[in-house]
Amino acid sequence: MANGLSYCFKLLNKNRHILMPVFYFILLSTIVACRPQPTYRQLPQNIQLRNGDLAFRMGNSIESAAVITADRSTTFSHVGIIVFTNDNWHIVHAVPGEAEKGAQDTMKMDTIPLFFRSDRARKCAIYRLPVPDSIAGKAAKSALDFYRRRLLFDTAFNLEDTTQMYCTELIYHAYKQVGIDVSGGRRHTIPGFPYPMVWPSDLLKSNQLELIWYLE
């Protein structure tokens, strides 16, 4: 028995240059195979969307969960605007870090299941502004125009510079074009930094938004 084991170890040791890569390949394949695949979330069929509806999500990023502060009434960390184009509902939004490899962070237009994919959203909602369809439709068209201009993500978070946009800024300017201030005048300036910001939570606080769909 001992001789048998000893022979096996010798054999393994002798062929380790072949066996180790095989071992690592199997290990890596197992890890990849066991990793949960993200879920593409479909809206229920009874949900009637409208151009200009707002799509909110709470991200899964480290920052979203790591910092603990005073009041943790979690709402959402990202927002986009819903547009109907190319025979399908899409969400136009400005987000960093989701561009193709090597590409710049320009504005994006994702399908709804992709926008709400489980690895990007741990909480999802769609809200509607209390404005006529025609007004919301024009805001959606403005957002689509911004998207077609391939505007870059605004890393300075400068609300007044419309050559680049961050998520809330896109919604703010899309509705500003039709004379509506979705921020309700709310601004936040960080000590030591220029340019006041508008946050996704400001949109929820400032408007009589109607909840269309929610998933957590």
């Binding site: 910092v67 709402t75 936040h188 939570s201």
Partner: peptide, 10 residues
């Protein structure tokens, strides 16, 4: 002081 956790990533 942040009143909403969703504002932190922003």
């Amino acid at each position: 002081k942040v009143s909403d956790e969703g504002d932190i990533p922003v």
